[in-house]
Write a protein that binds this DNA or RNA. Structure first.
Lengths: 169, 169
DNA sequence: AGACTATACTTGACATGCGAACTATCTCCA
DNA sequence: TGGAGATAGTTCGCATGTCAAGTATAGTCT
């Protein structure tokens, strides 16, 4: 509307083309935001297709990975939450499901009885090891179109965006 | 596990630092994927904080924007869905809420009575105009830490990732 | 015309993200 | 000691993503 000509050039492969949006984005920042969220959504679904055959969601997979990273000392519930991709309060239910499925064990902590420590079970570890190669492949498939230097650049740009959002928060 | 040394250097500001993960990512692709999804999540929550005071969700805001882009001809339900960031089938319910709130109007199409065309109402347009400046600010705040050239680079990298994922799908 | 298939939603069931309220502990400090 | 406040989880209500099944309408073939 403001720029006059509606049918301006549309970069092929761009979100604007993908979304068939007739009105271009108002600002580059806006385009970047939408592109970022859409790309994340597509990637997330690709990951889901990999892990769901094993009966877990991407969020659950994430929790299992975090617990594997924690090692045999386990990790308290809220620490797990901090490390998740999504920051939700749904961590309790997620752990409920994982415990029910036998991939996770939970125990009240001794010195501080408020805490509940989660541990990865052997089944959980086995599941992760079964998924590792496929998840790795999916990641490589997604990022494979970029060179190593470009992946580094991407990560660095995203890190800076998050830092900015945090400080602003 | 495979790489041996756990306490390698942790880039400050990186997802690895933010997530306090003791075990570094296995591959750069993996780090990029997690970083991408986490950044998107943070950005999405930032957007939510902007639009929720007006009583709508980010997804609803997105639909309203799409309908504004469609102009007075409106847009059929499934076309709206294609243009959303998330590709879900929840579009009907989203439109239900928006219609209930008076921001959207729906009509059966004349030539093809299967289609339901959605239109932005004046209230919807007014809501968007009320939100535009704040959303714009939030976007600028998020991307403001990057130079114009960096924003362009980011968008181009993300576009390529999505293209790769699509072809692979 | 009548049947078969495709299209455009719509609905239902379930998982999950999110904020807010609630419970159980723990800590601190008078 | 005992009460206020912080901390760790849990639970609730609601919105939404996802898949699968259902409904109405179009188009197509015979």
């Amino acid at each position: 509307m403001s720029s006059g000509d509606a049918a301006a050039q549309v970069r092929p492969g761009s979100v604007q083309a993908e979304i068939r949006q007739s009105v271009p984005f108002r600002t580059p920042a806006e385009e970047a935001g939408v592109t970022l969220m859409r790309t994340s959504s597509v990637l997330s679904r690709a990951m889901a297709r990999v892990v769901e055959p094993e009966g877990i969601s991407v969020a659950q997979y994430n929790v299992l990975r975090i617990l594997r990273g924690a090692g045999k000392n386990g990790m308290p519930t809220l620490s797990i939450r901090e490390r998740m991709i999504e920051e939700g309060a749904s961590i309790t239910r997620l752990l409920d499901k994982l415990e029910e499925a036998g991939y996770v064990r939970r125990e009240r902590c001794r010195p501080d009885r408020r805490q509940v420590i989660g541990y990865l079970t052997d089944e959980g570890r086995a599941l992760l090891e079964r998924l590792d190669p496929m998840v790795g492949e999916a990641g490589e498939a997604a990022m494979g179109v970029l060179s190593a230097a470009e992946v580094t650049t991407l990560v660095s740009l995203l890190d800076r965006i998050r830092c900015g959002l945090r400080g602003d928060d």
